[in-house]
Design a protein around this nucleic acid. Structure first.
Lengths: 135, 135
DNA sequence: TTGCGTGCAAAGGTTTTGCATGGCA
DNA sequence: TGCCATGCAAAACCTTTGCACGCAA
């Protein structure tokens, strides 16, 4: 069988994933956060493990507008990222977590009119926040 | 006023956009396809023009899983882009043009609850379309 | 011992940036 | 003429790949 070895780098990465189960992260986030006995992991190790975890189905991989790197999200237990969506201020970059229900009505209208279904998890509403509006 | 100059490279790029109004393309596609009097455009010229067109609202910019470059789509024929917003199928990539009014109520609710204002022009609602849903 | 996973180095790709030049208005 | 856009070069990123070595099984 392939992919059976349990190594320290791999374990450290998986630990990071579990600690950040409801967050999206990039390869860089792992490189910055994870180390084995004080030593930073190698880039290729991180990429290869992420790729392997994707194939094993533990990880969702996707691109996001505004993020210049591939995003990943741990999907064990269907993380708690499914009950809310994100809005981001296009000026300061701050992220807001909105309840999915706020788009319920609009979503129904859109489905009726255009035949498409909003994917809350993948949508980021771009906005301007109060602080930035004042300026 | 800024961005007023009409130059040959810029015109050539805009011409390409019009010819490919219903297609997604990357900066590389333009570099490969567009030239001015037989001379290939410079990368930075292409990137700077695409960025400018995005800010002017003529172009939608987004990332797509599996494509290792930023994707763009021209949105002429749908007005100045200020009266509608975009939704994109996360499976096939097709772009839908939605009337801003469809999010009016939700937008008001969001403003009330979170103090933020949706920027329709910058938002791309990720969705799944009818065709892809059937599969 | 076997062979997979890691670290290292290098390469390939996209995108950004500084600077001098050329061209539009 | 004034100033923006371009082209060039270089750099900053992200990501992938080849190879030798070390370590899990």
């Amino acid at each position: 069988m392939k992919g059976e070895y349990k190594t320290k780098p791999r374990n450290a990465i998986i630990e990071y994933l579990k600690e950040n189960a409801d967050t999206r992260f990039t390869a860089r986030d792992i490189l910055n956060a994870v180390d084995v006995e004080g030593v930073e992991l190698d880039r290729s190790t991180v990429y290869r493990n992420l790729e392997r975890l994707c194939k094993e189905g533990c990880l969702v991989k996707y691109k996001e507008t505004g993020v210049n790197a591939t995003c990943y999200q741990y999907s064990e237990g269907h993380g708690s990222c499914h009950d809310h969506m994100h809005a981001q201020c296009s000026v300061c970059g701050k992220i807001f977590h909105l309840d999915n229900s706020i788009l319920e009505d609009a979503s129904a209208k859109i489905k009726k009119e255009y035949g498409i279904e909003i994917d809350y998890g993948k949508t980021v509403l771009m906005c301007i926040c109060q602080e930035c509006k004042k300026k």
